[in-house]
Every structure is written in structure tokens, then in C-alpha cells.
Simulated assay, not measured.
Amino acid sequence: MQPWSADLAGRLEEHVVTSELLRGNPLDDPHERPVLVYVPPGYDDEPDRRYPSVYVITGFTGHVGIWRNRMPYRRPFPETADAVFASGEAPPAIVVFVDAWTAHGGSQYVDSPGTGRYHSYICDEIVPWVDGHYRTLDAPGHRAISGKSSGGYGAMITPMLRPDLFGALATHAGDALFEYCYLTEFPKCVRHLRKYDGDIRRWWDDFRSRTSFTKPEDMELLNILGMALCYSAREDGTPDLPFDPVTGVLRPEVWDRWLAWDPVRMVPGHAEAMRSQRAIWIDGGTRDEWYLDIGAQAFHRALLDAGVAEDAIHFELFDAGHGAIDYRYPLALSWLCHRIAP
């Protein structure tokens, strides 16, 4: 295994898409965004053939450039995805790597006055752009979305909200059952904020003034601030924290706004959309530090209770924590491609 590069049997193409929906966004983040599109082996040989598509979205703090990162003794996902198709393990598909990074780490793939219209950006700009530039099968039954952590969260909620576009999904350790994956972080943040007189904006100003992640509180405060911008921002973009930053007492009216975005709680209201899915892959590590294996179980049960056919779901827990589970991605990709192939 070479430590620096490898040849692909298919091809990874780089683009920049201008988004009108992200122009003038609340964080003044770029409205021109990179998009990577992988085309499988043989794409140029059959000019009349159309292909299913799989959209891949990143976790919190992720951007499209992370797909080029190479860990020791492991290949990055574009290469392991290429191997799936080159070996004939799965029917060929177009794989789209989407960027939804924000200055606060991520967008959770929702439309929010705190970050911008990232849900609409994917659904109303990126999908039509891909369909207009590549020979895709333009139908929800042939279009899937996949991601890990916050990307897994986006993969759960996007087909709920837009079943007219997405008919399959894969979620790896996706954010779910918020009382376990987020609530346990709140008291840690209260302790951290003692250094900043309970003002998370003071921490943010400090964070931006120095090298990132050089203080122990950085990741936890960034995560809570980022989620507040996505789930509980006011119309003017100001984020409301779901707890009192000095006493730690929950603010029920704000916490309820977070819970309304919990995929487990969203399923009953989007049961028909979930029943329309051709394939749903759910997995998570049994040692996940944010208890997202429990969230995966709860999401799985919510789907079954909503009437989703058991044979449409692949549910699996495996021995791992939250990190370094990229070896799961090609497994889900292969399974999805078999389900969304024409």
C-alpha cells in the first residue's frame, strides 16, 4: 500500500459550483463551493448509459478536502470506493462528495438563520447541477445519501425532508437520540465557560485569536456553539444555548427546538417518506463516545415502528469507538449500490 497516492480505475473530477442560496449567508462563508465527482470505470465507454448516484457528506468540521487525507496503512474513501467498483463487487455508480463546511464547523445540512440554507443548497442546487453535468438516473429510487457522524445525521434527515430526491441512505454513527449524544456535553461546557464568565462568544473570540484546538475546551465548546447555530438560532442569527451557561439549568423552550431536529423523534412525522426508501443502512460502534450506537438502535426501532419494511434496512453494531471507522464506508456503498441499481 503506497503512502502517498494510488491510481484509480475510475476518475475523480474537481469542480466549483456557485451557490445563489449560500450567497450572503449569515457567517459570510464562501458561496462558491468545491464538489468532487467520482465516475466509475467504463463511464466513457458507454455514452448512452445512465448511472445511480450516491452523495457523500462529511462530519462536523469536515470539508470536501478531507477525502484526500491519507491515514497510515489505510486508503482514503475515494480509493476504497473505486476498489468496490473496479472489482465488480457492486454495480457502478456516480459518487458525489459535497462540501457544507461553515466557519463554526458545519451546517448539520439544515436551513438555519444562524448558518445558511445548506439543506436547500444540496437539494435544489447540487443535485440538479450533478444531474445536468453527468449521466445520472434522475429518480429518488436511484439516488442515495451517505455520511458519518454529523454527515450521518444529514443522511438521516435529508431523505425525510426530500423523499422526492433521495430514496436510500447510509448513516454511520449519525447524531441521534439527542439526550445522550448532546445533553451529556452540557455540564462540561458549563465548566469550560467559567473561564469566560459564562459567555460563549468570549470563548469564540479567543478561539479565533490563536491556533485552534490548543485549549482543552475548544472542541466541546465549538460543537455546542455550532449545534446551537443550526438548531436554535434566532431569526437574526443569534444562537440560543439550550442551557444556562452559568448555572447549567436546561432552557426547555430552547432544548425542545433541538429535540425537534432529533432523527428519532422526526421519524413518526415523516413515516411515509421513510417507508418510501429502497434501502437504509444504519451502523455504529459499540464503544462510541457519544453513545451513537444507542442512537442507531433507537433510530432503527423508530423506523420499524413507523412501518418501514425490515428487509429494506441493514442494521449493525460493531466493536469500535466513534473515530477511524472509515472502513465501514465501502461496505455501505456496495450495499446501497445493489439496492439503487436499475
Score class of each variant (00 low, 15 high):
T184L: 12
G116C: 06
M227T: 13
D45I: 10
Y121F: 15
P30D: 08
L225W: 00
P187F: 06
A296Y: 00
Q108M: 14
M71C: 03
P163Y: 13
D29R: 02
A170L: 08
T102C: 05
R33A: 06
G116S: 07
H172I: 01
R339P: 01
V96A: 00
V37K: 06
R234I: 12
S112N: 02
T214G: 10
G323A: 11
T158P: 00
I325K: 09
V56A: 00
R210K: 10
I145Y: 08
A260I: 12
N69P: 00
S334T: 13
A273E: 09
E32G: 09
E179W: 07
Y153L: 08
Y43C: 08
V308T: 07
A6T: 08
G141R: 15
G151S: 09
G10E: 02
I282D: 03
Y291D: 14
L22Q: 00
A320G: 03
A144W: 10
E14F: 06
S112M: 03
A279I: 10
H338N: 12
D197C: 03
T136L: 08
Y134S: 08
S149R: 06
R202N: 05
I282Y: 04
D7Y: 12
Q277D: 09
A155S: 15
F213P: 00
E289Q: 14
A332H: 05
P159L: 11
P263K: 03
S232P: 01
Y182N: 10
T211Y: 11
Y43T: 08
V254Q: 04
S5Y: 13
V96H: 02
Y134K: 10
K215A: 15
A341Y: 12
D199C: 03
G307P: 01
H104F: 15
C181V: 05
